[in-house]
Simulated scan of single mutants.
Amino acid sequence: MSAVPFRHPVVLAITGASGAPYAVRLLQALVELRVPTWLIVSSHGWRLLQTESGIGDLAALRAQVGAAAFDATVTVFDDNERGAAPASGSARTSGMVVCPCSMGTVSAIAHGTSRSLVERAADVALKERRPLLLVPRETPLSLIHLENLTTVTRAGATVIPAAPGFYHQPTAIAELVDFMVARVLDHLQLEHTVGKRWGASS
């Protein structure tokens, strides 16, 4: 599988909203496409990965997505390391994805609190006018959630709710996951073969 060469890395953050399979599949796709990736997993993100995907540590995550390719393309940062490269606007990136994105993270981004590396990196993406893709998974949505999502959208983020379609007649959970991951990859302007497009015969 080939990809359009990225000059700069994509920042991928995994936070504590339900949706670990989306995060793992997205990371796997980025690794397969050989996209340089800066990975940040929050403490709640690790709990989520363990609960929903049985991935309890970095070694397990590497094994899941392919250790050799992971080591060749992924740089891991601690969420507490607020002085790391993703926290600086002078460190150039191709944008950032928060997948899944908890409502707490949405709130922090909307109000610019920057209490962690995930939050600061998102703040940097906005201020540098780089793509910021947020993949929230919450239902129902309170007025506070909706207002925060509106705020981040007005600031320049793109909200991609984890709400897969069914027009491609999925028969497995993996196909629903791929539907969402494909939308994220599209917004990163990556050529890929994840999922089935509307009107495609195969």
Rank of each mutant, 00 (worst) to 15 (best):
A3I: 04
P5H: 11
R7Y: 12
H8D: 13
P9Q: 07
P9C: 12
L12F: 08
A13D: 06
G16P: 05
S18C: 03
S18T: 11
R25V: 06
L26A: 04
L30A: 03
L30I: 08
L30S: 04
V31I: 14
P36I: 13
P36N: 07
T37A: 12
W38Y: 13
W38D: 13
L39T: 01
L39V: 01
S42R: 03
G54Q: 08
L58H: 09
L61D: 03
V65A: 11
A67C: 09
A67T: 14
A68C: 06
A69I: 02
F70A: 07
F70V: 06
T73Y: 15
T75K: 09
F77W: 13
N80A: 14
N80G: 08
E81P: 00
A84S: 04
P86G: 03
S90F: 01
S90Q: 02
T93M: 02
G95C: 02
M96G: 07
V98G: 01
C99A: 14
C99Q: 01
T105S: 13
S107R: 13
T113A: 08
R120E: 02
D123T: 03
D123C: 00
A125R: 01
L126V: 05
K127T: 11
E128V: 00
E128Q: 08
R130S: 01
P131N: 03
L133D: 08
V135A: 15
T139M: 12
P140S: 09
S142H: 13
L143F: 12
H145I: 01
L146I: 08
N148L: 03
T151A: 15
V152G: 02
T158A: 14
V159T: 07
V159C: 10
I160R: 05
P161D: 09
G165R: 00
G165A: 01
F166W: 12
V177H: 09
M180W: 04
R183A: 09
D186Y: 03
L188Y: 07
Q189F: 13
V194R: 13
G195P: 09
G195S: 12
